[in-house]
Design a protein around this nucleic acid. Structure first.
Length: 897
RNA sequence: GUGUCCGUAGCCCAAUCUGGCAGAGGCGCCACGCUCAGAACGUGGAUGAUGGAGGUUCGAGUCCUCCCGGGCACACCA
C-alpha cells in the first residue's frame, strides 16, 4: 500500500487539469465567448477554418493536431484584437454510414448523428473555441436543400449536363468514382479493383473554368504550399499544340484528327497510333484486318485500368490495314491501333514521329517502321542526339528543322508557330489547347448523399425540378443489404411528389408523369461550399425551397477564408473542387470572391513507431507498444525489443502514420483523461513546425505535461503575494542584475513569439520561447513586480496553445475579464539589448577571447578600445594586423600575419 | 527520368530568409539533491568534422556550383 503524505499547510494547490478545464469550458459556453458578429469592419476580422471532419465515430490524433493548430491561431488572433470567425461542422454524407447500416442494421442517419453527438462532446472537451451557433451537418435537411437550390442555379447557368460514358466503377462499392478517387487503378477507399463501365452520368462543367483555375494559382504562390500548387497545375495539365487533319487513303469521307505539341516534327510522321476505341476504327479497317483489330480491342479491354495506366504495361499495337495521308507531304503512313493511346485525351489519335519521341521510337523499332529525322540538334555532342545517330533512342529536344521542305533551317520554336499557321491557312489544322482535367462526374449510385434534383419523363427526357418543388428528401424506409443502390429499389419514392401525390413535371400539354433521378451527388459537393455557408448558416426561410442558399453580403464580408488548415491529401480533389465551386457561385450571383482560401496551411501527419514480427511468407504481425519491452543503451539507442508475452524479439519498424492496422495509434480520449486537453494540445504544437510530421511518444506528452505543471507550481507558489502587485512597467535600465536580465528577456521572448506566430505559425518555437522564459524566472532572485511581469507575460503567451491553464493562472494572478481580453503582450525592441556588448574576438576566423564594451562606442573610439584590449594584444603578439573588421554590436575579426 | 523540398548532438528540432561565438526548447542519457527505496520533482552535466567537395567572403550551418543520401509530387497525355 502506498503511503500518501498529508499536504503541509502551505502546499500549493495541485495541478488538476480535469477540473480546471471543465470549469473554463463551462464559463466560455455560458458567456458565448466565441460567438462572432457579422457586422464589424473586415480589417478587424479574421476567418480561420479547419477542414471539417467526417463523423466516423471518434476523434483521432490527426484531428487533434489539425484543430489544435487552428484553435491556437484563432485564440492568438483574438488576443491581437481581431474578431475571429472560427466555425465547425460535419461532412456527414458518405459511404461509411451506409457500410455501418449494412453491417449493424442502424440507419445511416442514426449512426451519423450519434457519432456527431459524441465527437462534438470530444471537441468541446478539447476546449476548441468554435462559434458553435454556426454548426451544421451536410446531411441536415437545411443544408442539403440549399445545395439542391444551388444545383438548379448551376443547371440554369449551363454548368450541368448528362452524358453516357465510360466511368470508373468500383467493384467494392458498386458505385462510380471520380478519376481522383482512383489510385493506381484501385478504389481509393476500399482498394478493390476499378473497372470501366458505360453508364449515363451527371457532370459539372469544371473544364469551363480550367483557364481561371490555372491562372489564379500564380496569385496563390507564397500563400499556399508549393506542393499543392504544383499538384493542381499537373492535374489541370494544360498543353498547347495543334490539331492536324489526316485524310484516310481510300476513304474520302473519313478524316482523322490528331493532337500534337510538336507540329514542328510533322514532316517526320511515319505512322499513326489510334485508340482502339476510336469511333473511326470500324469505318476504316478493311475486312482483311478486322479480325486482328477486334482481337486486339478485346485484349486491351480485358486488361484492367490499373495495368493499362501503369508504366509496366507493354506498349503494343496492331496494324489496322488502313493508311493515313500526311497533309504536309502526302506521305502515306500506316495506322496502328495502340494500347497506350487514350481515347478521351486530345483527339484519341496521335501522329507518330519516332525520331523525336521516345515512345514512338520504341514502337517503330518493335514493328519495323521507318524513322525519319526532321530535327537536328544544334549541339552535335548532345547525348540524346548521339543516341539517335547511333539508332538507340529518339532526340526529343528542340533543334533546327531538316527534311521539312520550306521550313528547313528554322528553329523548332518558330517552326511550331509557322507550321501551325500554314496548316490553318490551308484548312488542315489549327492551334489548340488541351487539358488533362475532365469534367466532374457528380453521380453516385448511393443512398447516403444529396439527391440530384432531376426527373425523367418518356417524352421530355431529363427535366430539372423547379425550385418550388425542392427539396428532394431521402426516403427513410429503405433496406441496406449491400446489393446496389437502396433508393433505386424503393417501391414508390421515385414516382411520388413531396405531398404524396404521383410525381409529375410540367410539359407542353400539361403535367406529365415523371420518375425521379435516383443517383445522389458526390460528397465533394458538400465540402465545396460549406465555408461559405458558415458565414450565413441561418439563411433559412420556413419554406426550405424558397430561401436563398447564401447571403451574398455576409459571404463577401468573410470570404476569402484568411487561413485554411488541413491535410495535404486534399491537395487536388477537395481544394480544386472548392475553388471551382466558388467561381461558379460567383457566376450565379452568390458571391464576388472568386478564390475561397487566401492562405493554406497543410499540417503534417501524426506518426508513431511500429513494432512487428515478420515470418517469410506471412503477413507482418504488429504489436501494441504496451505489449513490448524495449531496452536502450547509455545514449538512448534501442538495443533490443521483446514481446512481453513470449520474451521473443520484436522488430522496431519505421515511424509511420498512425493507423489501426499497424497498431500504432493513440486514442486522444485517453490522453485527455490522463494528462488533460491542455497537455495534449501543447504536445501536438511542440517540437516540430505544423507542416512537418510529428512523432507521437509517451515521453513527449509527459514532457508537455511536466512543463504545464512547472508553470502551475511557479505561478500558484507566488500568486498570493503577487495578486496586488502591478507588473513592472519601467525601463530595463532602471533595474539591475537579475531583474534587468528578466525585463530584457520578457521583451525578447514576446518579440520572438510574435514573429514565430505571424510569419509561419511556428508554434514549436513559440513554445520553446515560453519554456526559456520559465527557466529564467527564479522567484527568490527577483523583485515582485518584475516577477509579476514575467508571469503575466508567460501566461498570456501560452494562452493560445493551452488556454484553460492560462485562464486559471491569469485569474489567480488577479487578472479579470479573461486572458483573451487581456490581449497579446507588447514589446519594445529597444529594451531587448543591454548597454554593453560582449564582443567575440576572432583572429583569422578563430575565436580567441571576448571583450566587453559599451554599446554606444562607435567609429574611431570603438576601434581604439578594441586595439587597447588585452585579448587583441595577446592575439596580435609578434604579428602585424593586416585588416581589422569590426561589426558594431556583433563581432571583431582580426586578419593577422 | 523530371520537378521540388530537405540533410545541424543518440532522437525531434532552433539558428538559414537578412553570413558574425554552432544551440532556443523538448526527449533520451549521466551525476547530485530529496527518498528506506523507487516514482515524481529539483539542480547540474556530457555529447558535433552542421551529408561530401569546391567557390565567394575578413568570416559560411547560412550565399553560389557540383556530388551523395532521403522525402514528396508527376511520369504512356501525344
Amino acid at each position: 500500500m502506498r503511503i500518501i503524505r498529508a499536504p503541509a499547510m502551505n502546499d500549493p494547490r495541485p495541478y488538476e487539469p480535469a477540473s480546471i478545464e471543465t470549469k473554463w469550458q463551462q464559463t466560455w459556453e455560458a458567456a458565448k465567448a466565441y460567438k462572432v458578429r457579422d457586422d464589424l469592419p473586415r480589417e478587424k476580422c479574421y476567418y480561420v477554418l479547419e477542414m471539417f471532419p467526417y463523423p466516423s465515430g471518434k476523434l483521432h490524433m490527426g484531428h487533434v493536431r489539425n484543430y489544435s493548430i487552428g484553435d491556437a491561431v484563432a485564440r492568438y488572433k483574438r488576443m491581437r484584437g481581431l474578431h475571429v470567425l472560427h466555425p465547425m461542422g460535419w461532412d456527414s454524407f458518405g459511404l461509411p454510414a451506409e457500410q455501418a447500416a449494412i453491417e449493424r442494421g442502424a440507419h445511416p442517419a442514426k449512426w451519423t448523428y450519434e457519432n456527431i453527438a459524441y465527437m462534438r462532446g470530444q471537441l468541446k472537451r478539447m476546449g476548441f473555441s468554435y462559434d458553435w451557433t454556426r454548426e451544421f451537418a451536410c446531411s441536415d435537411p437545411g443544408y442539403a436543400a440549399r445545395e439542391q437550390d444551388i444545383f438548379i442555379d448551376l443547371v440554369e447557368k449551363g454548368l450541368v449536363y448528362r452524358k453516357s460514358s465510360l466511368v470508373n466503377w468500383s467493384t467494392g462499392l458498386n458505385c462510380v468514382l471520380a478519376n481522383e478517387q482512383v489510385v493506381d487503378g484501385k478504389c481509393w477507399r476500399t482498394g478493390m479493383p476499378v473497372v470501366q463501365k458505360e453508364l449515363p452520368q451527371w457532370y459539372l462543367r469544371i473544364t469551363s473554368y480550367a483557364d481561371e483555375l490555372l491562372a489564379q494559382l500564380d496569385a496563390l504562390k507564397g500563400s499556399w504550399p508549393d506542393a499543392v500548387l504544383t499538384q493542381q497545375r499537373n492535374w489541370l495539365g494544360r498543353s498547347e499544340g495543334a490539331e492536324i487533319d489526316f485524310a484516310v487513303d481510300g476513304h474520302p469521307e473519313a478524316k482523322i484528327t490528331v493532337f500534337t505539341t510538336r507540329p514542328d516534327t510533322v514532316f517526320g510522321v511515319t505512322f499513326m497510333s489510334i485508340a482502339p476505341e476510336h469511333r473511326l476504327v470500324d469505318a476504316i479497317v478493311p475486312a482483311s484486318h478486322r479480325a486482328a483489330v477486334e482481337a486486339f480491342r478485346a485484349e486491351v479491354r480485358a486488361v484492367s485500368a490499373q495495368e493499362r495506366m501503369g508504366d509496366t504495361a507493354e506498349k503494343k499495337g496492331v496494324f489496322t490495314g488502313a493508311y493515313a495521308v500526311n497533309p504536309v507531304n502526302g506521305r502515306k503512313v500506316p495506322i496502328y491501333a495502340a494500347n497506350f493511346v487514350v481515347a478521351d485525351y486530345g483527339t484519341g489519335a496521335v501522329m507518330a514521329v519516332p525520331a523525336h519521341d521516345t515512345r514512338d521510337f520504341a514502337f517503330a523499332r518493335k514493328y519495323g517502321i521507318d524513322i525519319i529525322t526532321v530535327i537536328q540538334a544544334t549541339d552535335a555532342k548532345h547525348p540524346e542526339w548521339m543516341k539517335l545517330q547511333a539508332g538507340e533512342d529518339a532526340y526529343t529536344e528542340a533543334g533546327v528543322l531538316t527534311a521539312s521542305a520550306q521550313f528547313d533551317g528554322r528553329p523548332s520554336e518558330d517552326a511550331k508557330r509557322e507550321i501551325t499557321a500554314w496548316l490553318e491557312s490551308t484548312g488542315k489544322g489549327r492551334k489548340v489547347v488541351t487539358w488533362r482535367l475532365r469534367d466532374w462526374c457528380l453521380s453516385r449510385q448511393r443512398y447516403w448523399g444529396n439527391p440530384i434534383p432531376y426527373a425523367y419523363t418518356d417524352k421530355l427526357g431529363a427535366v430539372p425540378l423547379r425550385k418550388q418543388d425542392l427539396p428532394v428528401t431521402l426516403p427513410q424506409d429503405v433496406v441496406f443489404d449491400g446489393k446496389g443502390n437502396p433508393i433505386e429499389r424503393h417501391p414508390t419514392w421515385a414516382v411520388t411528389a413531396k405531398d404524396g401525390s404521383p410525381l409529375t413535371v410540367r410539359g407542353q400539354d400539361g403535367p406529365e408523369a415523371a420518375r425521379r433521378e435516383t443517383d445522389t451527388m458526390d460528397t465533394f459537393m458538400e465540402s465545396s461550399w460549406y465555408f461559405a455557408r458558415y458565414t450565413c448558416h441561418d439563411n433559412t426561410a420556413a419554406d426550405l425551397g424558397c430561401a436563398a442558399p447564401l447571403d451574398r453580403k455576409r459571404v463577401d464580408h468573410w470570404l476569402p477564408v484568411d487561413l485554411y488548415i488541413g491535410g495535404i491529401e486534399h491537395a487536388v480533389m477537395h481544394l480544386l473542387y472548392a475553388r471551382f465551386f466558388q467561381k461558379a457561385l460567383c457566376d450565379v450571383g452568390y458571391s464576388a470572391k472568386r478564390e475561397p482560401f487566401k492562405r493554406l496551411l497543410c499540417q503534417g501527419m501524426v506518426c508513431m513507431e511500429t513494432l512487428f514480427r515478420e515470418k517469410p511468407g506471412e503477413k507482418k504481425q504488429y504489436f501494441y507498444p504496451d505489449e513490448v519491452d524495449v531496452e536502450r543503451d547509455a545514449k538512448g539507442r534501442v538495443i533490443t525489443a521483446v514481446a512481453k508475452s513470449d520474451g521473443q524479439p520484436v522488430q522496431i519498424g519505421r515511424v509511420e502514420k498512425m493507423s489501426k492496422s499497424k497498431r500504432n495509434t493513440v486514442d486522444p480520449q485517453a490522453l485527455i483523461e490522463q494528462y488533460g486537453a491542455d497537455s495534449a494540445r501543447l504536445f501536438v504544437l511542440s517540437n516540430v513546425p505544423p507542416e512537418l510530421d510529428v512523432v507521437w511518444s509517451e515521453d513527449g506528452i509527459r514532457g508537455s505535461h511536466r512543463y504545464l505543471k512547472r508553470l502551475w507550481v511557479l505561478v500558484t507558489d507566488n500568486a498570493e503575494r503577487l495578486r496586488g502587485v502591478a507588473p513592472y512597467s519601467g525601463k530595463a535600465a532602471e533595474v539591475a542584475g537579475a531583474d534587468q536580465a528578466v525585463v530584457r528577456k520578457v521583451h525578447a521572448v514576446i518579440k520572438r513569439c510574435t514573429d514565430a506566430l505571424e510569419k509561419d505559425f511556428a508554434f514549436n518555437t513559440a513554445v520553446a520561447q515560453c519554456m526559456e522564459l520559465t527557466n529564467e524566472l527564479k522567484p527568490d532572485a527577483l523583485r515582485p513586480d518584475v516577477l509579476k511581469l514575467g508571469l503575466s507575460t508567460l501566461v498570456r503567451l501560452i494562452a493560445p496553445m493551452s488556454p484553460h491553464i492560462a485562464e486559471e493562472l491569469w485569474e489567480l494572478l488577479g487578472g479579470t475579464g479573461g486572458v483573451t481580453a487581456a490581449g497579446w503582450p507588447a514589446f519594445d525592441e529597444s529594451e531587448i539589448a543591454g548597454d554593453s556588448v560582449e564582443y567575440p574576438v576572432q583572429a583569422n576566423g578563430k575565436v580567441r577571447g571576448k571583450i566587453v564594451l559599451s554599446r554606444s562606442l562607435a567609429g574611431k573610439d570603438l576601434e581604439a578600445a578594441v586595439l587597447a584590449s588585452d585579448v587583441v594584444k595577446a592575439a596580435t603578439e609578434g604579428k602585424t594586423i593586416k585588416k581589422l573588421v569590426i561589426v558594431p554590436g556583433k563581432i571583431i575579426n582580426l586578419v593577422v600575419g
